[in-house]
């Protein structure tokens, strides 16, 4: 699928169930992720859902049911789509659905079933995967490794080690009040080492050292060509962002952090020079 085309999603409520909070939430959240979402409203028959899916030319259909009628209704939607020669449209479902029913539904052609409490990023990453979507690869935005951030208890001692011990040239020292840190830079070839000393006990770096039981590698930062787009792409792929919007970091750069929970525990920063 082309990366520039917006994904079209139909969120539908088959059957007589009136619980539409979840369906409406998913519809709005997917729209916020940049997808084109059509919501049918309640009390749709499987046939009317299939018709709408065709008319609206959607890529994927999400069904919601909380009345317990899923085993009867969901497979019927898949059948109707097949009858209309639209079996390529991916169908997924959600609602109050016992775990034991999920294998049956999957066998009947429901690609995935999401039960209450599912985070929206789980659904978005499913959709991208199910549609084989080549979203703009992250590498496209990343220019180079900008720096590695190292947390230290004392900037003076850190500078001593890197300047005298390793013979690197100190690029400068700067305070970033927003992050409650003092920073020292050393140029290493095309990239940098950034030493971070907390200026207050509630600085994120102080908290990191508390958890880490001392100094250590704090984060990895990549320079990107377009930080807003890079964040959008990361989010669309289901990654969690600490900063939804870039803010100002050292050197007046635009920076934003990705959550370590979705980057295999490595706190990751995107930055862009202004």
């Amino acid at each position: 699928m082309l990366k520039d085309k917006k994904i079209r999603v139909l969120i539908a409520k088959p059957g007589l169930d009136g619980h539409d909070r979840g369906a409406k939430y998913v519809a709005k959240a997917l729209a916020d992720h940049g997808m084109e979402v059509i919501y049918t409203g309640i009390r749709q028959t499987p046939e009317s859902i299939a018709n709408t899916a065709l008319q609206e030319d959607v890529d994927i259909v999400g069904l919601s049911c909380l009345s317990g009628a899923h085993n009867s209704l969901f497979p019927k939607v898949v059948e109707e789509l097949k009858n209309k020669k639209a079996g390529d449209i991916v169908v997924f479902g959600g609602g109050v659905i016992p775990k034991d029913d999920i294998p049956f539904l999957k066998k009947a052609g429901i690609s995935e079933v999401f039960t209450p409490g599912t985070p929206i990023r789980t659904i978005t990453s499913f959709i991208y995967k199910a549609l084989n979507i080549e979203t703009a690869p992250a590498e496209q935005f990343i220019k180079k490794l900008d720096h590695i951030g190292v947390a230290v208890t004392s900037l003076d001692e850190g500078i001593k080690l890197y300047a005298e011990g390793m013979g690197l040239a100190l690029g400068g020292v700067e305070e970033v009040p927003e992050q409650k840190v003092k920073v020292a830079f050393f140029k290493v070839g095309d990239t940098n080492i950034e030493l971070l000393e907390p200026t207050s006990p509630d600085s994120p770096v102080a908290k990191f050292m508390e958890k880490n039981q001392g100094p250590g590698i704090h984060h990895v930062a990549y320079e990107v060509t377009n930080i807003e787009k890079a964040l959008e792409a990361a989010k669309a792929r289901g990654m969690r962002l600490i900063d939804e919007k870039p803010r100002t970091g050292a050197h007046g750069k635009k920076i934003a952090f990705l959550h370590p929970a979705s980057t295999m525990k490595v706190l990751t920063e995107y930055c862009q020079s202004c």
Binding site: G15, L16, D17, R43, T45, S67, G68, A69, N71, S72, L73
Partner: peptide, 22 residues
């Protein structure tokens, strides 16, 4: 159940799958 709440008998086509469920 939902068919009762919406005024359909159990043999109505829209009641299919919903009879006795909620």
């Amino acid at each position: 159940d939902l068919p009762t709440q919406i005024g359909y008998d159990s043999d109505h086509s829209l009641a299919s799958g919903e009879v006795g469920k909620v």
